[in-house]
Amino acid sequence: MGGFESFLFSFFNLKVMATYLPLVAKGFGLTVVLALLIVACGLSLGLLLAVVRSFGLRVLNWGIIFVVDLFRALPPLVIIVLLFFGLPAAGITVSGFAATWLSLTLVLMAFAEEIYWAGITAVPKGQWEAARSTGLGFLQTLRLVVLPQALRITIPPLTNRTIAITKGTALGSVVGVAEILGASQSAMSFSANPSALTLGAIAYLILFIPVVALGRWVETRFAWKR
């Protein structure tokens, strides 16, 4: 077998790929579900924290800032490992899926809160004053005047951050989640051939290249024009 042939046999073995395609496809589905759950929960929790923070209650805000800093500073894998291997010591067992979902949700929540908050504070004070001078209340002003402007400028950084964090779903493989990486790793050990891993890599590209391109497009499209 020549070098190139052996390369093809190892990494692009169509027979192996065909055999394990269903397994990796299942992993693909799991990755998508996990990613959607993380995005939905992380972004809404982050927005909730940013709104609560805008009330300006000092002690509460210190708490929010600490939680946000904590989950920005900790590597996601450390949180996953802590939840999955640590919690059983307290008598709580969580599945690998739940540990991965919760960890990445908390991380996305923290980054999203920070971005939303920067967006809210970037809206000029005059907008608040104008709205309040017409009799709108605090929450009405926040919801109708400030947030629409804040969300718009947060779209590019938020999109990029969300993409980066959802890619962390691959970390689930460490705690036995059969998402794309987990599925293709077990396929690789069954078949003693890394073609399944190639298949996994292709699955990630199919999933994330459009998303990365979307992020790039969003960055130019939502440049704030006044």
């Binding site: 390369f7 190892s10 890619k167 691959a170 990486l181 891993l197 890599a201 990630y204 290249i209």
Partner: peptide
Amino acid sequence: AIPPLVLLVFLYAGLPFA
């Protein structure tokens, strides 16, 4: 687009096959 862990596993566990 490729998660870094996928890349790492590919390099560490995949390349030896070749």
